[in-house]
Structures are given as C-alpha cells and as structure tokens.
Simulated scan of single mutants.
Amino acid sequence: MRRLVSVDMCAGAGGLALGLERAGFDPVLLLDSKPQACETLRHNRPSWNVLEMDLLDFDPVEHQESYDVDLLSAGLPRVQSAATTKRMDTGLELGLLKATIYLVHAMQPRALLIENVPGLVDDPAFEEVRAFIRNELEHLGYGLHWFVLNAADFGVPQDRKQGVLMALKEPFSAKFEVPAPTIEKHITAGEALRASMSARGWTGADTWAAQANQVAPTLVGGSEQRGGADLGLSGTKRAWARMGINGGALSDEVPGPDGVQESDTSGSPLKKITVDQAAVLQSFPTDWIVTGRKTARYRQIGHASPPPVGEALGRAVIRALTG
C-alpha cells in the first residue's frame, strides 16, 4: 500500500507525527513556533521538513509542498471556554484553532485531524466554536466526525482523554470509522515504570509497582509562564500520591538500591518520576530523544499527543481514504 502524505501543525515533540508515521503517513512539512520543539523534531528525524514559525504567520502560498496532501493534522494548544476560564491566553488558543480551519480553504486536504480538549466535542460551552467549524467546513464538502478517545484504551498507561475532530471530504467521510480500542486490559503505571524504577537496584520497586495498580493520571506540560515542572494541580497530585509518587517535582534519577533519589531534598517518602519516565507514560519509544533541559523536556512531553493514539487515528484515516 502506498504511503500517504501529511502536514502537521503545532507539531510539538512529535507525538502525533510519530504515530501518523507508524500508520503510513510521511510528513512533507511540520510546523511549530517553539525552537526547542523544532530541535527535538530535527534531532529525531533529520529528513523531516521542520519549519519554525507561528501558525498565525504561515502562508501555504509560500510553501507549495503543503498543497495536495492527504491529511492536515494539528495537536493544538488546549482551547478553553470563556465561560470556564479566566486564562489570558484563551484568545490565542482559539485563534490557532480558527487559523487551522482557515488553512483548509487554501490547502484542501482530503482529511483534517484536530486533537484537543474533550469538551470541544460536546460541551455546550464550546457550541459556538463547533458552529464556526461546521460553517467553514461543510460547505467545502467535508463531513465532520466528533469523538473522544482515552489514550489508555490504546496501550498508553495514562488516563488521558482527547477530543478529536476528524473531517474528511466526501465520499471518504462516509467510510470513516472511529478507532476501536487496541487493548483489552489497561497498562498500569506500576507495570509501565517497574523496570525503570528498579534500574539502579531499588529493592522496593516490585512492591511499589504492585500498589501503583492504576493507569497514571493525565500528564500536563504546564504553562510556559510559570515555574518548574510538576505533575499537575492539587487533585492530580493526590492521585499520584496514592500511587506512591510525589507530584510536586521531577527527579534527576530513579531510586538507588535503598530507595534514595539524590536530587530529591523534599524529605517525602514518596518517589519522584524522571523526565524519561514521563516519556514512558506518554508511550514515546526509548529511542525518541526529547531535547533541552529538564523543564523544557517535560513540557514537550506533557503537551504531546501519545504516539499510539496518533497511530490509531492515522490508520482510521487511511482506511477511509484508500478503502
């Protein structure tokens, strides 16, 4: 079967693009505004055409390779409803979503994939946004599919719900089917991290893994405008604590034989995960190197779309486009 071609906007650390590559897509262009994310993409795939640019400044006329593609994909910054947030960057996030929709007018891809918050799919607070998308795409001949996937159903050891818009031109839209779960039993945080927790000989790793018997809470990359990396808000940190994890910060190393993490000066008996372990929880392969310093690496990982979800979505698009 021939490989299809794609353009990926707000590519970040490449989680969605990597999943689509596994499914059978070759990107002709990947765009991100953050230098560190672009460095990560170029480090792992030197052959990829990576463009460091703000999506709002992108003009497809100046990048002819973006025309006549099978898929336009975008793992966009999380849009927040004005009714549910006071965040200052809401307008920017919504602007990036609208800019992606406007690109469809010029590029006319056979399929569009946008991954974002679950509320975008059916929350009444986002109805105005959905109406805008419908008005822009339906008259161009696209059929729209809105649905929510949980990454845990695709082998990711994390309770991570993702809202998805899949728009395909007819007659392809009628052939699209929402990806079905690829596993029958969820992978727990303990199962995913046991090997790394014992890598330096920690004798308590098996006991820890046995009680960390749920999928991990959702990883969050956090805001660029606040301090160092942590694993989320208070409620999320309590969920991590029930798994024996200190969610207040990341460690530079996994536990030693006696369970000590030298970089942890908190005095807590709970263990901290490392950036590499966060990548495991996002199901990045071990040979995918996320570049930068610790906080920059964690933010790239936390904001990413898990590759197994991208792969499942890519395969569903290919089935619709190729029959």
Rank of each mutant, 00 (worst) to 15 (best):
G302W: 00
G201T: 01
G204A: 04
L92N: 04
D68N: 13
L18K: 10
H186N: 02
K169H: 05
Q214H: 11
V5N: 03
R194V: 15
M166R: 01
R134S: 03
A151F: 13
V260R: 14
R238C: 01
M53F: 05
L112K: 05
S234F: 14
R3H: 14
G119A: 05
L31Q: 08
I289T: 12
A82V: 13
E65M: 14
P46F: 06
T100L: 02
V178C: 07
Y298F: 15
A111Y: 14
Q162F: 03
G24M: 09
L96K: 00
T295Q: 05
G247M: 02
P181E: 13
A192I: 10
C38W: 10
T207F: 02
G310Y: 08
F284S: 00
D68P: 00
R297S: 10
A106W: 07
G232Q: 00
L92H: 05
A17C: 02
M243F: 02
G14P: 05
D159S: 11
I183P: 03
A151R: 10
Q300V: 00
S33T: 09
V28T: 06
F176P: 00
L233F: 08
G221K: 04
Q282H: 01
F154L: 06
R293I: 02
V121W: 13
Q64A: 14
G163N: 02
L149K: 07
T203W: 05
H63R: 07
S283L: 00
P181F: 07
A13E: 09
A279M: 03
L193C: 09
I289M: 11
T218W: 01
F58Y: 12
E224H: 12
S6D: 01
T274C: 08
L41I: 02
T236A: 13
R297W: 06
Y102D: 09
S266L: 00
G12Q: 12
R242D: 04
E115P: 11
L321I: 09
L270Y: 09
N246H: 03
G247L: 03
M166S: 06
A278I: 00
I133H: 07
V148N: 12
D26L: 15
G232Y: 06
G267W: 04
T274R: 06
P255L: 10
L29E: 06
A189Y: 11
G141N: 06
M1C: 03
Y67K: 02
E224S: 14
M107A: 00
L103P: 03
L55W: 13
M243H: 02
D26K: 15
D89G: 04
A229M: 12
A167R: 04
H43D: 10
H145F: 08
G235P: 00
V69H: 10
P157Y: 03
T84S: 15
R3W: 08
W288N: 03
S268I: 07
L94M: 14
A11V: 06
S234Y: 07
A195R: 12
A209P: 12
S223C: 05
F154W: 01
A229Q: 08
P308K: 13
A316E: 11
P255T: 03
Q80P: 07
E127C: 11
P269A: 14
A13N: 13
L165D: 08
A151S: 15
V260W: 08
Q282I: 00
D57G: 11
Y298G: 06
L94V: 13
L41Y: 08
V5T: 15
